[in-house]
Design a protein around this nucleic acid. Structure first.
Length: 268
DNA sequence: CCCGGAACCTGAAGGC
DNA sequence: TGCCTTCAGGTTCCGG
């Protein structure tokens, strides 16, 4: 389930391989993954578009095109991008044919992933909150997001309108690292806890990027490699294991309809 | 405003 | 062994 570090890794892996290439055509094998424009217009406009670079915003991946158009993708739960040549694997939902003969395969077993072609990125990305690895994400800016909110702190971390890019795994890891219970009302965090959680968010995301993303379930890098970030996880997907700090069995509860792993002893 | 729940989907895992 | 149910989680939408 690609979150910020996984999408950043896809971007970093793909960008040197596709920048400067021209898209000959795109084959849609699952039409409903295209949000806009219509299939006919999409296929007409995408033809012979030169890729001048890539970008990431939150969990969105952006191919910047010379004409000013942007091809924006979201992997949702099970999407991944693979560089290949012919014979797309099962569950391939779209194939981008490049002029050098390589293909980008959008693989997505659960068909939740989305793609759209727009001139103005803001219409898609405008609602997103602050980039957690940017300079704008200061302790002060983070603290302001928690003011007067009774919602569980984990819900704040997962709200893309507030902070863009954190998903279920990295939210659990950040809360464990800062010793905060996932169900604590956001406004109840002390100044010290806000500072610790702010640092933990940046630490776990940077660590995820350094390890080329976490390969749990369906995530693979465009060259087919796995990431290694899941090996660093202290709690996420560690059901029935003891806490690495105090050996108390980790618990799994539901917070905001999400499976949430935490240590009932360390996280208050 | 804020929350809970359903929908979108399929494959994997668990129960009997 | 095999069928059936449940679960997984990112986002959007709908109802209370």
């Amino acid at each position: 389930m690609p979150e910020l570090p996984e999408v950043e890794t896809i971007k970093n892996d793909l960008e040197p391989n596709v920048t400067g290439c021209t898209i000959k055509s795109v084959t849609l094998l699952w039409e409903r993954m295209l949000l806009q424009p219509s299939k006919d217009e999409f296929e007409r406009v995408i033809k012979n578009q030169k890729i001048i670079g890539m970008d990431r915003r939150g969990k969105y991946l952006i191919f910047k095109l010379e004409s000013g158009y942007n091809l924006i993708m979201h992997m949702r739960m099970s999407g991944s991008l693979m560089l290949g040549k012919g014979n797309p694997p099962p569950h391939t939902r779209a194939v981008i044919h490049l002029d050098d003969g390589t293909e980008i395969h959008f693989n997505d077993p659960r068909k939740f992933g989305k793609m759209q072609l727009v001139k103005d990125c803001e219409c898609v990305l405008g609602k997103l909150g602050v980039e957690p690895l940017s300079d704008e994400f200061t302790v002060k800016a983070f603290a302001r997001l928690l003011d007067n909110r009774k919602t569980a702190i984990k819900g704040i971390l997962l709200n893309q309108c507030l902070i863009a890019g954190i998903g279920n795994m990295y939210a659990d890891e950040a809360l464990f690292a800062s010793k905060i219970h996932p169900e604590r009302p956001a406004a109840s965090l002390t100044e010290g806890e806000k500072i610790a959680l702010h640092k933990a968010i940046r630490d776990v995301l940077w660590s995820g990027i350094k390890n080329k993303g976490a390969s749990v379930s369906n995530y693979f890098r465009p060259d087919g490699d796995s990431g290694a970030a899941q090996k660093q996880f202290k709690v996420a997907h560690c059901k029935d294991k003891p806490c690495p700090v105090c050996r108390t069995p980790l618990q799994r509860i539901r917070v905001h309809q999400r499976g949430t792993y935490f240590c009932p002893n360390c996280q208050k």
